[in-house]
Design a protein around this nucleic acid. Structure first.
Lengths: 105, 105
DNA sequence: CTTGATATGTAGCTCGCCTACATATAGGCT
DNA sequence: AGCCTATATGTAGGCGAGCTACATATCAAG
């Protein structure tokens, strides 16, 4: 699945990934690909701006690190981010209920 | 749930409702409220423009009718609309799989 | 004779996400 | 030495969905 199929769930997906442990952007993309069973393959142009939005919102905290010459910006989820994830998860479950009821699936 | 929780599934919800039979805008809003177990309450400013978009796209066909003095625009799903609904349903199921896998729910 | 339900629609706006591009280092292959 | 791929981060410009608020009209009930 490419990025236009996630329909507003991008932040929730990223926060859910970060709750398993801090990670940098490239690793988040790889983790989402892996945890989705190779179904999700998000472009960097989608994920990096999202991380900056989340950082501005106070949901993640970023810090620069160095790994074998390559600079990395490693993000960790904050308390506010955990709360946002909880809300995102609840919103998702509500949507799932409605879609299930209407589609009859 | 208000309209900002449906995240790109509006067209699919409307098409799914119309596949049970033709209906006018106001009835579609009521039907979605009913079939979702009173969870969905969409504002007219969301549904009516969506119906016009769907009509422009050829997914629904509208015709004016009269019922006890009130004019109604009754919409019926087209063949192209059925195909779009099938795709919308498939896209939704794919998203649901990914979300379930990543959220672990 | 006013209020609420029925019924449709527009104007203006915000924001999420996409596409395409730009940049840089490390490691392996030839 | 030179090239390609993987790793890694980011910007510019743009589109379109759906929201908020508003405007309009008829019918039924109190």
């Amino acid at each position: 699945m490419d990025a236009d199929g996630i329909h507003g769930q991008l932040d929730t997906l990223i926060l859910a990934t970060l709750q398993r442990g801090e990670a940098h952007g490239y690793a988040i993309i790889a983790a989402l690909k892996e945890s989705s069973g190779e179904q999700l393959d998000l472009p960097s142009g989608t994920v990096y701006p999202a991380l900056r939005r989340l950082e501005r919102a106070g949901f993640v905290a970023g810090k620069w690190t160095q790994a074998s010459g390559r600079r990395r910006r490693v993000y960790a989820i904050t308390e506010a981010g955990s709360a946002a994830l909880a809300k995102g998860r609840a919103d998702w479950l509500a949507l799932r209920e409605v879609m299930t009821a209407v589609l009859g699936t």
